Simulated scan of single mutants.
Amino acid sequence: MAFPGTITVTTPDFADRTRMPDRFAAEHEDIAPMIEVSGVPSEAVELALICHDPDAPIPFGWTHWTVFGIAPDQTTITAESGREGVTTKGEAGYSGPLPPPGHGDHSYYFWVYALSRRVEGEPTREEFLRDYADAVIEQNRVIGIYSR
Results as ranks from 00 to 15, higher is better:
residue 44 A to T: 05
residue 52 H to M: 01
residue 29 E to R: 14
residue 135 A to H: 05
residue 74 Q to H: 05
residue 125 R to T: 10
residue 13 D to W: 03
residue 138 E to N: 13
residue 59 P to K: 07
residue 111 W to G: 00
residue 1 M to R: 12
residue 89 K to N: 12
residue 9 V to F: 05
residue 123 P to V: 07
residue 52 H to E: 02
residue 29 E to Y: 08
residue 12 P to Q: 03
residue 124 T to L: 14
residue 26 A to D: 11
residue 19 R to V: 10
residue 43 E to D: 15
residue 99 P to V: 10
residue 104 G to P: 10
residue 120 E to R: 13
residue 83 R to S: 13
residue 69 G to C: 06
residue 17 R to G: 00
residue 108 Y to C: 01
residue 59 P to Q: 09
residue 120 E to I: 14
residue 13 D to I: 04
residue 13 D to E: 15
residue 10 T to C: 01
residue 82 G to V: 07
residue 111 W to L: 01
residue 49 L to F: 07
residue 92 A to S: 13
residue 132 Y to H: 10
residue 96 G to W: 03
residue 143 I to S: 05
residue 69 G to I: 05
residue 104 G to T: 09
residue 108 Y to M: 00
residue 47 L to A: 07
residue 130 R to M: 11
residue 77 I to V: 12
residue 110 F to V: 02
residue 49 L to C: 08
residue 63 T to K: 01
residue 31 I to H: 04
residue 5 G to K: 14
residue 90 G to C: 02
residue 3 F to W: 12
residue 130 R to G: 00
residue 140 N to H: 13
residue 122 E to V: 15
residue 147 S to R: 14
residue 140 N to W: 07
residue 87 T to Q: 03
residue 56 A to Y: 15
residue 68 F to A: 00
residue 128 F to G: 03
residue 57 P to W: 02
residue 82 G to T: 08
residue 63 T to A: 06
residue 75 T to K: 13
residue 108 Y to T: 01
residue 7 I to T: 05
residue 39 G to M: 04
residue 93 G to M: 05
residue 116 S to R: 14
residue 57 P to R: 10
residue 18 T to D: 01
residue 25 A to R: 12
residue 45 V to R: 02
residue 36 E to V: 07
residue 146 Y to S: 04
residue 142 V to R: 09
residue 16 D to W: 06
residue 40 V to W: 10
residue 92 A to E: 14
residue 137 I to D: 03
residue 18 T to E: 11
residue 41 P to H: 08
residue 50 I to N: 08
residue 12 P to N: 04
residue 77 I to T: 09
residue 31 I to G: 05
residue 6 T to E: 10
residue 79 A to N: 11
residue 8 T to S: 11
residue 27 E to V: 06
residue 15 A to F: 05
residue 46 E to C: 00
residue 124 T to S: 15
residue 78 T to K: 11
residue 148 R to D: 09
residue 73 D to C: 02
residue 71 A to N: 13
